[in-house]
Amino acid sequence: MNATEEWLAAASIDPSVGALRPDYRALLIVAEGLRPGPSDDFSEKLLAEAEAKACDPDQHPHIAAWREAFRAFGAKPKRTRPSADALLRRAPEGLPRIDRLTDVYNAVSVAHAVPLGGEDLDRYTGPLRLTRAEGTEPFVLMSGGEPVTENPRPGEVIWRDDEGVTCRRWNWRQCVRTRLTTRTTRAVFILDALGAMDDSALEAAGRALTDGLLAGSPGAVTLSRLLSA
C-alpha cells in the first residue's frame, strides 16, 4: 500500500455523525496527475451542460434531506445552505467559473444534485475525518484579502485533519488552506449522500466526476473509497 492508499484508508466518520444521520455516506475520490489551470473551453462545456439540466432545488428530495440534516445540528439552511442547494440556485443565472478542476466538480454537483467538494491533497496534515466540533478547532478563511481564523460552533459537523477544520457545516464552506488552486495536481473529492440518494445514484455521480477528471487530465490516476456512517 502506497502513501496515498494509506491516507485514503485512514479517513473516518465519527460515531457522533452516524448518530445524527445514520443514512449518511461519503464517496471519497482521490486523483493524482491532474492538469490544473484557469477555466477553459473544456470546463465551460461541462458547466453549460450542467446548467441546462439543473433541477429546482426546492423540489428535489436529496436537497430537502440535506436541509433537514443542517437543521439537526443547529444550522439554518436558508442562511447557510448545503453546497448543492446554493449551486443549484445559481444555475439559472449561470454557475461561477473558478478554475478547471473546481468547475468539473461543480458541474457534477449540479447535474446530480449532490454536495461535492474538492481539496488539495498536498495541503493536508494527517487523515481526513468527519466529526462534530468541540468549538476550538481553527478554521481559516479570507476576509478583506487577509487570512482570518474562526472556530466552528460546538456540535457543528465538520471535516478536519490534524491542523484544523477543512470544511465547516458538513459541506457549506471550505477553508483557504486546502482549497483547490490553479497549481493543484493531487486532490481529494468528497461526495456527500443521504438516504434520498441511493448507492447506485451516488456511484453514478462518482463515475461522472471520474470521467470528467480523466477527460480533462489524460493520464491521471484515481482511487475511491465509500465511507458509511
Rank of each mutant, 00 (worst) to 15 (best):
T4L: 09
E5L: 06
E6K: 02
L8K: 12
A9M: 07
A11F: 07
S12A: 02
S12C: 05
S12D: 10
I13R: 13
D14Q: 06
S16M: 03
V17T: 12
G18W: 03
P22I: 09
I29A: 09
L34I: 12
G37M: 08
P38Y: 05
S39G: 12
S39K: 13
D40V: 09
D41M: 10
D41R: 14
F42N: 04
S43Q: 13
L46N: 05
A54K: 06
C55G: 15
D56S: 02
D56Y: 03
D58A: 11
D58Y: 01
H60K: 02
H62M: 11
I63Q: 07
A65K: 04
W66K: 08
R67P: 09
R67T: 09
F73T: 06
A75R: 06
A75C: 04
P77R: 13
T80A: 13
S83Y: 05
A86L: 02
R89P: 04
P92L: 00
E93K: 13
G94Y: 01
I98H: 03
D99T: 04
D99V: 04
R100N: 07
R100D: 04
T102F: 07
T102N: 07
D103L: 10
D103E: 12
Y105R: 14
A107P: 05
V108L: 10
H112G: 07
V114R: 00
P115H: 00
G117H: 13
D120T: 06
D122E: 01
Y124E: 06
T125N: 08
G126R: 09
A133K: 01
E134L: 10
T136P: 00
E137G: 00
F139Q: 00
V140K: 08
V140F: 01
M142T: 00
M142L: 06
S143Y: 10
G144M: 11
E146D: 14
V148H: 13
V148N: 08
V148S: 11
E150F: 14
P152I: 11
P152R: 07
P152A: 11
R153F: 00
G155Y: 05
E156I: 04
V157Q: 06
V157I: 15
W159M: 02
W159K: 03
R160I: 01
D161Y: 05
D162C: 02
G164S: 01
G164Y: 00
T166A: 05
C167T: 05
R168H: 10
W170M: 15
R173M: 15
Q174W: 01
C175H: 01
V176Q: 15
R179A: 15
L180K: 01
T182A: 03
R186P: 03
A187C: 03
A187Y: 07
I190R: 02
D192F: 09
A193C: 14
L194K: 06
G195R: 13
M197V: 13
M197W: 10
D198R: 06
S200V: 07
A201T: 12
A204E: 08
A204Y: 08
G206S: 01
A208H: 15
G212C: 15
G212K: 15
A215T: 02
G216Q: 00
G219P: 11
V221S: 10
V221D: 10
T222H: 08
R225S: 08
R225M: 04
S228P: 10
